[in-house]
Amino acid sequence: MASSRSRYSRPTRLPLLGTTDSRTITVKLTASDDSGIKSADFTLYHGSSLSNADAVLKPSEAAPVCTADGTTSVCTAHYTIDPRRDLKNSLAGIWKVNVEADANDGDYVKVDGYTTFFMKRYAKLTANASPEPVAKGGTITVTGKLTRANWDTHDYRGYTNQRAYLEFRRPGTDYYESLGYTTTNSTGVATAKVTATADRYWRYEFRGTMTTRAVKATGDFVDVR
Rank of each mutant, 00 (worst) to 15 (best):
M1Q: 08
M1G: 14
A2F: 01
R7E: 15
L16C: 05
L17Q: 02
G18V: 03
T20H: 08
T20V: 09
D21H: 06
D21S: 09
D21Q: 07
D21E: 12
I25E: 12
T30Y: 08
S32G: 11
D33S: 14
I37N: 02
T43N: 04
H46K: 15
S48C: 05
N52A: 15
A53P: 07
E61P: 00
A62S: 12
G70H: 00
T72C: 07
C75D: 03
Y79M: 05
P83T: 06
K88W: 03
N89Q: 11
N89C: 05
N89S: 07
S90T: 14
I94M: 01
W95H: 09
W95V: 05
W95P: 11
V97W: 06
A101Y: 11
N104G: 08
D105V: 09
V109H: 07
K110Q: 15
D112A: 08
T115G: 06
M119Y: 11
K120F: 00
K120E: 14
R121M: 14
R121T: 09
A127G: 02
N128T: 09
S130Q: 10
E132C: 09
G137I: 11
G138W: 11
I140M: 00
T141N: 10
T143R: 12
T143A: 07
K145T: 05
T147V: 15
W151N: 03
D152I: 08
D155Y: 08
Y156I: 00
R157Y: 13
R157L: 11
N161C: 08
R163T: 07
L166K: 07
L166D: 04
E167M: 12
R169E: 12
G172S: 03
T173L: 05
T173H: 11
D174K: 03
Y175Q: 15
A190V: 12
T191A: 02
A192S: 04
A192R: 09
A192C: 00
V194F: 00
V194H: 01
T195F: 04
D199M: 03
Y201R: 03
W202C: 02
E205P: 00
F206L: 00
F206G: 01
R207H: 13
M210D: 13
V215L: 02
A217L: 08
R225V: 14
